[in-house]
């Protein structure tokens, strides 16, 4: 089946700066897709090109197979939820939501019906007559979402949709967004700099770096199989050990690590072994390191342990039961182990 959205080699240059540099990606119908990148990675520029607010310097955008590269925003079946929400301050919640439908010149009765329905979906029926100034941050966010969703776009673009909310509300809204997306059956593309948010919400994640597409895959793929050191570092926490290959293994300071990954090309000049904190256990493993506990951070659900080793500092996470069974204190000697399967190898 043809993907809903096809982005083909899209580029955007501002003077001498290339903000987006030949990005190609496909998004399937009903997919929850995340564009993940640090600030300056070009993710917002890419989103604005999909909405029609920026003219690409090169490349094409196809929606349902039709070229929409030159179609202005008001004629695209695509809606954008702005980071600032951009609610109309002089209009009530109801007027904000019905605005887009009025632009479609729908009959009054249908507009009223669809707005009521949408107010129900976002659970703000009681606040329909409020002005945006009289709403909390979370409520504004939901109105902004409703205003875009009520148009039933083919594609909804969300620019840092949860960026302005506090942490607790944010994790609640992550699940809420996913539920809503499922309920309305609209394809979502979310821009975020928060890797955790992308992992929780998205069906697939595209990691952008310096305007280029670095890696695209399911959350599991990008977390477990990052394509390079940058991607590994950007998503989640990762321990890195620099070393040199020797007999198919990686020789690092004070230890030798084996991996199921093939040795990367050009590794003779140096390579990096990487392992996630939650993959490291106490005791020996296929790969083993000895060290001393430097510090511990209690996180409730688990315990984060910082260990100094000959190969450098290592971070690992112990679940609460393991930590309780074997109490540790700063200064205690520990042995850390993990399997070759959990060891990634990257070029230096």
């Amino acid at each position: 089946m043809r993907p809903l959205l096809e982005v083909q080699g899209i580029e955007k240059r501002f003077g001498t700066v290339t903000a987006v540099d030949g990005v190609s990606l496909d998004v399937a119908e009903n997919e929850f897709f995340a564009l993940l990148g640090a600030s300056g990675s070009g993710k917002t520029t890419l989103l604005r090109m999909l909405a029609g607010f920026e003219d690409p310097s090169g490349g094409r955008v196809l929606l349902d197979g039709a070229d929409i590269t030159k179609v202005p925003p008001n004629h695209r079946p695509v809606n954008l939820m702005f980071q600032s929400y951009a609610l109309f301050p002089h209009m009530t919640v109801r007027a904000n939501i019905s605005y887009g439908l009025e632009m479609e010149r729908l009959p009054k009765a249908e507009i009223a019906r669809r707005v009521d329905e949408m107010l129900g979906v976002i659970q703000l029926e009681g606040l329909a007559h409020r002005k945006p100034d009289q709403l909390s941050g979370g409520q504004k966010q939901r109105v902004a979402l409703a205003r875009a969703l009520v148009k039933r776009p083919r594609l909804l673009l969300l620019d840092e949709p949860l960026g302005a909310l506090d942490k607790k509300l944010r994790s609640a809204m992550q699940l809420e967004l996913k539920r809503l997306q499922h309920e309305v059956g609209i394809t979502f593309i979310v821009v975020t700099h928060d890797q955790e948010e992308a992992l929780v919400m998205a069906d697939r994640i595209a990691i952008l770096k310096d305007g280029k597409l670095l890696q695209c895959g399911t959350p599991r793929e990008v977390y477990e199989r990052p394509i390079d050191r940058y991607a590994a570092d950007f998503i989640g926490v990762m321990n890195f050990f620099e070393g040199y290959p020797q007999d198919g293994a990686l020789q690092v300071k004070g230890a030798t690590f084996t991996s199921t990954d093939p040795m990367p090309q050009g590794a003779a000049a140096g390579a990096v072994a990487a392992v996630r904190p939650e993959r490291i256990r106490l005791g020996r493993g296929e790969n083993t390191l000895a060290g001393t506990v430097r510090a511990m951070a209690y996180h409730g659900l688990d315990l984060q342990l910082h260990v100094d080793t000959a190969a450098g500092p290592v971070t690992l996470r112990l679940t609460a039961d393991v930590a309780e069974a074997q109490p540790l204190h700063p200064g205690d000697p520990v042995t850390l182990g993990w399997s070759a399967r959990d060891t990634r190898l990257f070029p230096a």
Binding site: N74, N79, L80, M103
Partner: peptide, 14 residues
């Protein structure tokens, strides 16, 4: 906020 006019444009207004 320029995004407010953009939002109107995005929602289908001329």
């Amino acid at each position: 906020n320029p995004e407010i006019a953009e939002a109107s444009f995005d929602l289908g207004a001329s």
